[in-house]
Design a protein around this nucleic acid. Structure first.
Length: 258
DNA sequence: ATGGCTGCTTTGAGCAGA
C-alpha cells in the first residue's frame, strides 16, 4: 500500500504532471492541496480515466483539497469536509475512510508572518484541528494525517535555521502544534527511517531555491501506531520538482506492508 | 543538470504563497 501527499499549486496547471505522476508511481491514495478549483470544475473524468476516484472540496483562487484513490480500493465512506466546530469559508480539510484505513488531508494555513492576523488564524485553526484529530484517532485506529502542514518541525527541516529562527513556519507555537499532534499518537513517518540530511519538500520559486536546495520540509505524513508499525518507507520525490512548470512542493510518499 | 517566481484575477496590477 502506498500513500502520498502533494501540494500541486493549482490542479488546473498541474493536471498533466499529476496524471504522469500517478502513472509512474501508482499510489493507492494521493492527497492534493491547493487545487484552486471550484467543485464543478474538478477534473473528475480525467482522473477516472487514469483509474482514480476523487473526493474534493474547493474554491476559486485559493486553497482546495482532494483525495484520489485507486478504484481497486474499497469505496470511500464517511467523507467529511472542514473542521467540526470551526466555521471557515476556506476549503482546507477533507477526510475519508477506505475500508479500515482513515485518511485526513490538511492544507494548514500559511500564516504569512508571525505578526499577521493570518498567523492568529493559523493557530486557531490548528487548535480546532487538534480536537478533530483527537476524535479521529479515537474513532479510527488506522489513521493517516497528511498534507501541507506549513510547519517545519525542527531546525534540521530548514535549509538555513538561523535565518528562519522564529519566522512563520518555524515559530515555537507552530512547532508546538506539531509536537501536540505527535503526542496524540501520530508519528512523523519521515523520521521513522534514516534520511539524507537536507531533505526538503518545498523550495521557493525565487532565487534559485531548488538548484541551491534552499528548502523546507513542511509536507508531512503522520501515522497512528498501528499504521506506523506497518510503514516500510517514507520518501520525498524531489524529481517531481524538476522540469517545466513544477509545483513549488514535491510529493511525500509512505509505503506499507501488504 | 535542477537555474534568477508562479498562478490567479471582473486582463492587469496586485495579492498570496512560504
Amino acid at each position: 500500500m502506498k500513500l502520498a501527499t502533494w501540494n500541486v499549486n493549482s490542479l488546473k496547471m498541474r493536471l498533466p504532471r499529476v496524471l504522469d505522476w500517478l502513472a509512474q508511481h501508482a499510489p493507492d491514495v494521493l492527497c492534493l492541496q491547493e487545487t484552486k478549483l471550484e467543485d464543478p470544475g474538478f477534473p473528475t473524468l480525467e482522473l477516472d480515466a487514469a483509474g482514480y476516484s476523487a473526493h474534493f472540496t474547493g474554491q476559486k483562487t485559493y486553497n482546495g483539497v482532494a483525495l484520489l484513490a485507486r478504484k481497486a480500493l474499497p469505496a470511500a465512506t464517511d467523507v467529511t469536509r472542514g473542521l467540526p466546530g470551526f466555521a471557515d469559508d476556506q476549503r482546507r480539510v477533507i477526510a475519508a475512510s477506505y475500508g479500515d484505513l482513515r485518511v485526513v488531508n490538511f492544507y494548514v494555513p500559511n500564516g504569512q508572518s508571525v505578526e499577521s492576523d493570518k498567523y492568529r488564524y493559523k493557530l486557531e485553526w490548528c487548535r480546532a484541528a487538534t480536537s478533530f484529530l483527537r476524535a479521529e484517532l479515537a474513532a479510527h485506529p488506522r489513521l493517516a494525517v497528511v498534507g501541507d502542514f506549513n510547519i517545519a518541525p525542527e531546525d534540521r527541516d530548514v535549509h538555513d535555521p538561523v535565518a528562519w529562527a522564529g519566522q512563520v513556519l518555524c515559530s515555537d507555537a507552530e512547532r508546538q502544534v506539531f509536537r501536540d499532534w505527535g503526542a496524540l499518537g501520530l508519528a512523523d513517518s519521515f523520521r521513522l527511517f534514516d534520511q539524507p540530511p537536507a531533505t526538503f519538500s518545498w523550495w521557493d520559486y525565487r532565487m534559485l531555491g531548488f538548484p541551491k536546495n534552499h528548502g523546507l520540509r513542511i509536507d508531512h505524513i503522520l501515522l497512528s501506531a498501528p499504521l506506523a508499525a506497518s510503514c516500510t518507507s517514507c520518501t520525498i520525490d524531489r524529481n517531481a520538482r524538476k522540469g517545466e512548470k513544477p509545483s513549488d512542493h514535491a510529493p511525500v510518499i509512505a509505503e506499507f506492508e501488504a
